[in-house]
C-alpha cells in the first residue's frame, strides 16, 4: 500500500507538530508514508473566495505531486473535501479523478482502511471534540445532528481508544465554529461570536483540551482562547492519537 501524506499549507507553516504527529502515527501503525516535497496547498483559499478559476496551476501541481499513490492521507477534513469535490486537471483529468477518489482524511483512513481497533495512546485529560463542518457534513466522518439517521462518529471512535481520555458532552454537538476561510476576516464580528459560543460550550462542560480534525477551526478557536487568557488549549486529533 503506497500512501502519501498531504500536509496543508497552514499546517506546514504554523503547526508542524500536527504533520509530525500524523506521520509518526501512521508509521507506528505500520504504514510507509511518502511525503511529496513539492506540495503546497489544495487551492481552497482561492476557490472559497470565488476564484476557483485562478487555482488551475495549483491544481496541476497537486496532481503532479500526488499521482501514483493508493491513498493520499491528510490531517484536515476541509482540505480533503476540497480536493474530493473540486480538484480538476485539464491536462490529466483521469489522474485528478483518481486523486479525488483516493484522498482521505486521517481519521477516516484510520477507521475505514486500517480498521483501527486499539491504540497505545495515552492522554489523561478532559477533551471536547469539535466537529469540523467539512469533515462532518462534507466527508460524513460523523452523523449530522440534522438528519434522522443512526449515529456514528469516526473521530469519536478513535478518541475512545485513547487511555485516560475523557470525552466531554456538548450542548450543540456539531455547530460551526465560524472559521470559514476568508469568512473569518470578511465577517469578523460573526466569525468571532461563533467561535466564542463554541468555546463557551466546551468550557461549560469542563474541557481542558478542544480537539478536532481541522487545524483551521482550532487555530481560530485558539486565537480566541489565548485572547481570553484561557487555560484550555487546542490540540489536533493526530497529536492525541499519537500521544504517549
Amino acid at each position: 500500500m503506497k500512501v502519501a501524506i498531504f500536509i496543508p499549507c497552514y499546517v506546514d507553516q504554523f503547526y508542524p507538530q500536527v504533520g509530525i504527529a500524523t506521520l509518526e502515527l501512521l508509521e507506528k501503525l505500520g504504514v510507509s508514508v511518502f511525503y511529496p516535497e513539492k506540495q503546497t496547498c489544495c487551492g481552497q483559499p482561492m476557490a472559497n473566495s470565488g476564484f476557483e478559476h485562478l487555482a488551475t496551476s495549483c491544481n496541476d501541481l497537486f496532481v503532479e505531486n500526488f499521482s501514483g499513490y493508493d491513498y493520499i492521507v491528510c490531517p484536515s477534513g476541509s482540505c480533503t473535501l476540497h480536493i474530493k469535490d473540486h480538484l480538476h486537471a485539464s491536462a490529466n483529468e483521469p489522474a485528478a479523478e483518481k486523486i479525488r477518489s483516493t484522498v482521505m482524511e486521517l481519521t477516516e483512513f484510520l477507521t475505514d482502511v486500517l480498521h483501527i481497533k486499539n491504540l497505545t495512546a495515552h492522554f489523561p485529560h478532559k477533551v471536547g471534540l469539535h466537529q469540523s463542518c467539512h469533515g462532518q457534513r462534507g466527508l460524513h466522518l460523523s452523523q449530522m445532528s440534522e438528519l434522522v439517521s443512526p449515529g456514528f462518529s469516526k473521530p469519536q471512535h478513535l478518541l475512545n481508544l485513547v487511555q485516560g481520555l475523557e470525552l466531554i458532552p456538548l450542548d450543540r454537538t456539531d455547530e460551526c465554529c465560524g472559521f470559514g476561510g476568508t469568512f473569518c476576516v470578511a465577517e469578523e464580528a460573526v466569525s468571532v461570536k461563533m467561535g466564542k459560543d463554541r468555546i463557551a460550550d466546551h468550557l461549560h462542560h469542563g474541557a481542558e483540551y478542544i480537539t478536532g480534525g481541522d487545524m483551521s477551526c482550532l487555530m481560530h478557536l485558539e486565537g480566541i482562547l489565548r485572547r481570553q487568557r484561557s487555560t484550555t488549549k487546542v490540540i489536533h486529533i493526530a497529536e492525541i492519537l499519537n500521544a504517549g
Binding site: F14, I20, G195, G223, R227
Partner: peptide, 16 residues
C-alpha cells in the same frame, strides 16, 4: 478579537 498563531522554528517541510 483573536491572537495570531505563533510561528514555530521550522515548517513541517523543513523538519521533514
Amino acid at each position: 478579537q483573536r491572537e495570531m498563531p505563533t510561528a514555530p522554528k521550522q515548517s513541517f517541510g523543513e523538519w521533514y
